[in-house]
Amino acid sequence: MSEALSAPLAGRGAPAVPHPGPPMIGMAGVTKTFKRRDGGTHLALDTIDLDVAPGEFVSILGPSGCGKSTLLYIVGGFVAPSGGKVTVSGDPVTGPGPDRGPVFQEFALFPWKTVLGNVAYGLREGGLSRRDAEARAGELIERVGLKGYERFYPQALSGGMKQRVAIARTLAYGPKILLMDEPFGALDAHTRIKLQNQLLELWERDRKTVLFVTHAVDEAVFLSDRVAVMSRQPGRIKEVVAIDLPRPRHRDELLLDRRYQRHVIDLERMIEDPPDLAS
């Protein structure tokens, strides 16, 4: 994108990792307008172009109200775009599907189901017998560190535990893509760091494609291969920044890493830029 701006880092605006075939997620000219109460229209997303390669971890970073969650819901097939096209492995998105697993800030666990029932839900929907589904769900619950809580109802769990259940529920049906909508936004700082580490561990093991919406700069830098910075009103992608930090990443090493610090400072500046008030 705008290479003319000061470019202290190599890799800014870098394209996706080269790969054969169509991108895992392709967003081309995606727009979204909402009808306002007064009859006018509000342009929430303005021609979003972004490709995500298979196995890539891409964050969408932006201030609240920039439409980043709406973009994620469009990729999920929950919300229809007003214009443009979204593809997954080249196929147009027409609705939700188990190839794209969402994780929401609000956890959205089924309160009438136990931890085991929640995690087994997608497996049962996929046609597995109760026994097989529960066995597989048990493994996932163990993997997110909640062994022993299978028979608990979500309301008895802390926020961090709920979100681990939600992640296990989504991983259970084996989506190719994880769509994470500020998943750690409702958690306290300590829990957030713990879950970031855990997510990174999980991801570095099976390298799913992740689209991760956040407003936290350090979180985006810590986790991502690339960060798409969005601006507000209308929601546009301002810049795409490649995060050239080695993996596996460890928080204690990263915090001392100059490149990490540089990325955080640059991105913070980018979101803080005052909106264009050219009127």
Partner: peptide
């Protein structure tokens, strides 16, 4: 009924009609 409960079920493979008995009723 919380919309994200419906979305979670839809993404897990439940049909739109299926969500009535599996999500809307229990919720």
């Amino acid at each position: 009924v919380e919309q994200k409960l419906l979305w979670s079920a839809r993404a897990a493979g439940t049909s739109r009609a299926g969500t009535i008995l599996k999500v809307v009723l229990p919720a």
